[in-house]
Nucleic acid binder design. Structure first.
Length: 297
RNA sequence: GUGGGAUUAGCUCAGUUGGUUAGAGUGCCAGAUUGUGGCUCUGGAAGUCGUGGGUUCAAUUCCCAUAUCCCACC
């Protein structure tokens, strides 16, 4: 029946290919032209994940958007490795497209790689967009490289992606990066940051990051963000949420995650309004002025 | 009541054949986290070594007494 029925969710769903796990769990696997071999952490059995297998699984899951099985090039990468990696990602995309059995109701997005080399980004964008796909993603960024490099790579890549299809920056979720990437033409993001920060007791607020788990909030009975209208901020204090977290009570982490998601959804709503009003750069100035973000290099 | 064991960081425990600033795990405190799953990583603070005596140049370590806890037996 697929994910929509399984989850009772009739809106959009995107599934990832597993390519990023190859990157983030890199000491547990080995990459070949065929695919990625790894051993199960459950029973030690050997498996190989290939572009064909990834797409078959995603076809079975039935999400609205599915992602090509790519190689997320680690940073820093030698130019030669980055080139071979991007070329393999292109060959894998070809295999993904050939396997894809539900192109009538599932949108397969290709992924641009190229590490932090402008010409390689342009080469990858040309190779990936040579395939006629309903959307294109930029991968291999926000993997440890300085923010300036990420912005440069966006400027190299985005102009080569068709503007009538969604342009998706994978793995970015901090407020400053969201704004900077949107200014450069990105339409779509996904990120663990709001929920991972939430699960670690950190919240994004109109005054910057607040680590609500810290002892200094034990008797702070104000909401996480006084300017926020989310359920958690309307009903619970920093002191109570900290208490829940310190007591290992899951509800505390759900409240912080809830708030962080609300914060980013609200941020992007403001970004869209600023785009409509043609004042996105002004919005960026205003946002940084009273947000106090200091982590962009 | 008798015999044995234990007592070292908030907690669970190493250790010192008597010798500079007594360690670990966990917890606590503070950072990190960018293609999710309570994880992980990086720093930091933290102990009159149960208490009182004795021996000794020197005792957390050896001796005596004492307190508390555990086990066995009466």
């Amino acid at each position: 029946g697929g994910l929509h029925r399984f989850m009772n969710w009739d809106r959009g769903i995107l599934t990832d290919s597993g390519g990023y796990q190859v990157f983030s769990l890199s000491d547990l696997n080995h990459i070949t032209e065929e695919g990625v071999g790894f051993k199960s952490h459950i029973d030690g059995s050997s498996h190989i994940l290939t572009p064909e297998k990834s797409i078959q699984i995603q076809n079975d899951l039935g999400a609205d958007i599915i992602m090509a099985f790519d190689e997320c090039t680690p940073w820093p990468a030698e130019r030669d490795y980055a080139l071979r990696s991007l070329q393999r990602t292109t060959r894998w995309l070809d295999r993904c497209i050939r396997t894809h059995g539900r192109s009538h109701d599932q949108a397969l997005f290709g992924i641009v790689q190229g590490s932090t080399y402008g010409d390689l980004r342009r080469q990858s964008a040309a190779e990936i967009t040579a395939f006629d796909l309903p959307g294109y993603a930029i991968g291999g960024l926000s993997v440890g490289e300085p923010g300036d490099l990420m912005r440069q790579m966006l400027e190299e890549t985005i102009p080569l992606l068709p503007s009538d299809r969604p342009r998706y920056l994978m793995g970015v979720g901090s407020p400053d990066y969201l704004i900077d990437a949107t200014i450069r033409g990105i339409d779509l993001f996904d990120c663990v940051l709001p929920t991972r920060l939430g699960r670690n007791g950190t919240v994004l607020t109109s005054g910057g990051r607040v680590i609500v788990r810290d002892a200094q909030y034990a008797r702070d009975f104000s909401p996480m963000d006084a300017k926020c209208s989310c359920y958690a901020c309307r009903n619970y204090s920093r002191a109570y949420i900290r208490h829940l977290i310190k007591a290992n009570e899951m509800f505390g982490l759900r409240l912080t995650s809830w708030h962080n998601l609300h914060f980013l959804v609200n941020l992007m709503k403001q970004v869209r309004e600023a785009i409509v009003a043609d004042r996105l750069n002004d919005f960026r100035e205003e946002f940084f002025a009273d947000y106090g973000y200091t982590e962009s290099e």
